[in-house]
Design a protein around this nucleic acid. Sequence first.
RNA 1: GCGUCGGUGGCGGAGUGGUCAAUCGCACUUGGCUGUAAACCAAGCGACUUCGGUCUUCGCAGGUUCGAAUCCUGCCCGGCGCACCA
Length: 383
Amino acid sequence: MNKDVDSTSSLQVAELLSRGVEKVIPRELAEKKLRSGEKLRVYFGVDPTGAKLHLGHSVPLRKLKAFVDAGHEVIFLVGSFTAMIGDPSGRDIMRIPLTREEVESNLKTYKEQAGKILDLSKIEVRYNHEWLDTLGFKDIVDLASNFTAQQMLQRDMFDKRIKEGIPIALHEFLYPLMVGYDSVVLDVDCELGGSDQEFNMLAGRTLQSAYKKRDKFILTTKLIEGTDGRKMSKTYNNAIYLEDEAGDMYGKVMSVNDDLTKTYLENFTDLDMNEVEEILKLHPKEAKMRLAFEITKLYHGEEKAKEAQENFAETFSKGGIPADIKIVKADKDTPLVDIFLEQGLVASKTEFNRLNDEGAIKEIESGVYRVGKHRFLRIEWQD
RNA sequence: GCGUCGGUGGCGGAGUGGUCAAUCGCACUUGGCUGUAAACCAAGCGACUUCGGUCUUCGCAGGUUCGAAUCCUGCCCGGCGCACCA
């Protein structure tokens, strides 16, 4: 049952602490704990906010998996209580608190997505409302006494908000206390999180050592750029989602800046770093195709990934017709505009006319239309 | 509560009675060049149109005016200051 931890070789420790990792605080403690050969208690906390997970989210999840694979005791903490409050980190406006019902439905979605990376059944799942629900005011005051107003105000986003006159609600200061208290209850050796969680995790470290005398180290994972080089985020429309179809996923990776191929290989695939180096010696396009293949394979399996690759080559390199092209039947008297509009290929008739003027609408073979780069439709005309 | 400033298109941010479907930047779309990369060049970016125009937009609701995003009234929302420390 209690199998030996097999991550004690320096090489494995180095990989655990470097790949996809932004910071390890404090480093010496992390190395000492990992080298000791003991099974560590590690946790990763997430507020189920209902977001669609993208590759950026996969970095900490994959790191968590690495800890599971190395034989450590891993806890997946659901911020069932904290999600109702909202994390101010990285936010320039106040977050709207969620209801418990929303949290529950979000969690379901989250688990489905995270399940693509992690086998959640192998992990202990906890919910922080278990202990945060019942905390009294006295306990909170006590927790708060471990921090100063200055520490809170120094945080970037608060500083920024003050300068820009955007409100900071008082409860937003409480968030780090709450997630910090999670550490106290769970009493762990290590906490994982995105780099935006550094402050919160450090607060947990302070509290845990004050209350439990166990010193944990924290490990933050890197923030990876999206397809256009900016931070991967829904708002920038540059994210590759875990739920993207194989073809889509492959295509999106192909549209990423060449400069990011290495970063993506390192952080989004399981390939050995030596192999990564080999791949990078290829022509940039070849390297990226390999990257797209590997990522697609991870989420859709080898077969789908191959199909996606072949389809991509056929459609875009040769200018052919995609294998999964949408087919509609239409009366031969129906104007093209109406069909396109109905099928969502264009947003309005005006847009249709505009695209048409620009030469963006082409009939690449009888009945097969291509709008712009990646909108296709096959129409079967009926008499 | 009082005072004060402000709410404009995905975002930032002009405009302060007509020439405003609304300058500009970013984002986005499309064409060119390509490797569906980047960079670069060009065009577009409310809807409908018989391409002449027409219609709906500038927090919400009314009003003034030949005419309002622009003026007035009321309402809603937000910032800041004051009210405690002084």
